[in-house]
Every structure is written in structure tokens, then in C-alpha cells.
């Protein structure tokens, strides 16, 4: 088949669409759902800019097809903030200058979202390993690591 009907929940909202089967998940989010917060850098699984959360796990949305997420729950960068209130990870990136141009940021945020849930109190080297699949050309990663540590702290404080 060349087309497939899918039903997918993105950031809590359910969408029903018919997609061409070769449409990547990233293109589906950006072009069909107008969720352009997910960025596309390399489109072959190297840069990590398109990282989103599918059924609770961080994955590269350029390496999946929209046809594969029928029935899945997705979280993209648009789903992080609570209305006007930024998510603690976003807040920490803002506070610690974890971005300059911002192109890679959605990928970092979604990667860290999953990582900090699994490892709420990481060491610096664990953070560096966790974000090793995301490329940033501006910051030199220093402030991203600082932001990740700060985010871990405020998420722990919020949880207790």
C-alpha cells in the first residue's frame, strides 16, 4: 500500500490522517500537523535535532515513518510548556544560556526530558553521554550541561 490511515496522539491531542507511507514522522509533524518546533538538521540520524518522544522513549523522528505511529503517543517540544509556564528544562536552558541560535534546542530538550526522568540526579559525565547524540554548533555544550544539571535540580525539588 502507498497510503495509510493513522490515528496518533500528539501532546495530548488525537489526530486522524491519511499519510503517504514514505512520509517521515518528522515531515508529518512539521508539514501535516504544523508542529514546526521539531527541527530537521541532517535527516539521516546523526544530528539529533528531530528528537521527539514516542511512547515514552526519545527517538529520531527523521528515522521513522508516520505510518509507523498508528496508535502511538507522541510528545514534541510544543507539549513541554504548560501554557505560558515553561517546563523546568526549558526554564533552565533560558536561565543558563543553554542555546544561542536555538536550532538544536528542541532535540536537546526532548532527549533530556527522557534522560532526567530515568536518571534524576546525574553526574556531569552521565549528562554528556546522554546528549552525545545531539549536535550543537553554537554553545560548545558547556552551558547545555550546566542547564541540564540545573534542570535536574529543579525537577527533583518539584518532585519532593
Amino acid at each position: 500500500m502507498k497510503q495509510r490511515a493513522i490515528r496518533v496522539t500528539v501532546n495530548g491531542r488525537t489526530h486522524e490522517r491519511t499519510v503517504e507511507v514514505r512520509r517521515t514522522l518528522a515531515d508529518f509533524l512539521r508539514d501535516d500537523l504544523d508542529l514546526t518546533g521539531t527541527h530537521l538538521g541532517c535527516e539521516h540520524g546523526v544530528c539529533g535535532a528531530c528528537t521527539i518522544v514516542v511512547n515514552g522513549e526519545a527517538v529520531r523522528s527523521c528515522l521513522m515513518f508516520a505510518a509507523q505511529v498508528d496508535g502511538a503517543e507522541l510528545l514534541t517540544v510544543e507539549g513541554l510548556a504548560d501554557g505560558e509556564r515553561l517546563h523546568p528544562i526549558q526554564e533552565a536552558f533560558w536561565e543558563h544560556h543553554g542555546l544561542q541560535c536555538g536550532f538544536c534546542t528542541p532535540g536537546f530538550l526532548m532527549t533530556l526530558y527522557c534522560f532526567l526522568r530515568e536518571q534524576p540526579d546525574p553526574t556531569e559525565s552521565e549528562i554528556r553521554e546522554a546528549i552525545s547524540g545531539n549536535l550543537c554548533r553554537c554553545t560548545g555544550y558547556q552551558n547545555i550541561v550546566t542547564a541540564a544539571r540545573a534542570a535536574a535540580g529543579s525537577l527533583r525539588a518539584g518532585a519532593s
Binding site: A58, R60, G133
Partner: peptide, 12 residues
């Protein structure tokens, strides 16, 4: 295992 790709790669 942890030497294969990155976590986003190993998730899929």
C-alpha cells in the same frame, strides 16, 4: 551495548 550509537538510536 552502550557503545552502540546513541540512546535515541538504541531506543529503536
Amino acid at each position: 551495548m552502550p557503545q552502540i550509537g546513541h540512546v535515541q538510536i538504541r531506543n529503536r
